[in-house]
Design a binder for these strands. Sequence first.
DNA 1: CCTAAATCCTATTGACTATGTAGGGATTGG
DNA 2: CCAATCCCTACATAGTCAATAGGATTTAGG
Lengths: 144, 144
Amino acid sequence: MISQKARYALRALLLLAARGGNDPVQIAEIAEKEKIPRKFLEAILLELKKTGIVRSHRGRQGGYSLGRPAKDISFADVLRVTDGPLALSPCVSVMAYRKCDDCFEVSVCAIRKALLAARDATAQILESRNLAAAAQQLRRSGAL
Amino acid sequence: MISQKARYALRALLLLAARGGNDPVQIAEIAEKEKIPRKFLEAILLELKKTGIVRSHRGRQGGYSLGRPAKDISFADVLRVTDGPLALSPCVSVMAYRKCDDCFEVSVCAIRKALLAARDATAQILESRNLAAAAQQLRRSGAL
DNA sequence: CCTAAATCCTATTGACTATGTAGGGATTGG
DNA sequence: CCAATCCCTACATAGTCAATAGGATTTAGG
């Protein structure tokens, strides 16, 4: 299951994507529109900023906007920031490989082979879904 | 990421599958061979038993054996017991559907559409991998 | 029938994580 | 300058994960 943090992040980013424009949107506004606890959202946006997914503008009239075109921000990008690797095991993670603590021999691990196939399937989907497409979908269904 | 519990469960089940035979294997033996904390393994096997994945024999000369043919026990079956639904969100779970707490309208949720595709891809893989195939793989590579 | 060996069951513990809150520091537009 | 805004650190609370403890129940075999 994805975390609540991930849901909040995705909702906030979809709002930014829907705005499209370049003027920053303030935390307070996002929090209110998306019913996200303000201080928690603050922390989430800060993390997203560190990875370049969003950009911030400080001071009066400040706020957040997307760090790159919405079509270049995938669901996988976001989930990796909020929830860590997509993989079901460190030994099948592409972005953050690590041997399992109790694995005696990676190359012959039958569990690993299955989890690797699962990771590839998940990553293929989540990397192909981006904010632009999702926002457009919402627009078409009249939800925005 | 899957839980440690899931790893232990899969390893224990692979051992049972490799034995093939019908005579029960005792907790103590599985724990020692697979380096699993004995009491923890006890709890895991108990859970697996409740869902029919394994069968137990009490009393002297007791122990555990697979509850059905190894080829009919998928990785998905096991992970659902130890780690809950495969889905990344309750609203895309087939085995345990539930509306997300803060979802205003399921039918137009753009997040849901992506997570649903991810679930289908993962489930397709994990339901197709079973203990018999995994055990055979181990046998071929000389790990058993 | 008695006992040893095994599973079954409930409760508890310690460490860690998830979700949020509090308070103030740093920056910048007007 | 000052007020609005993001930035940062610390803390709180509840829940989950991994493991342990201790005994109750069942059964094979003498």
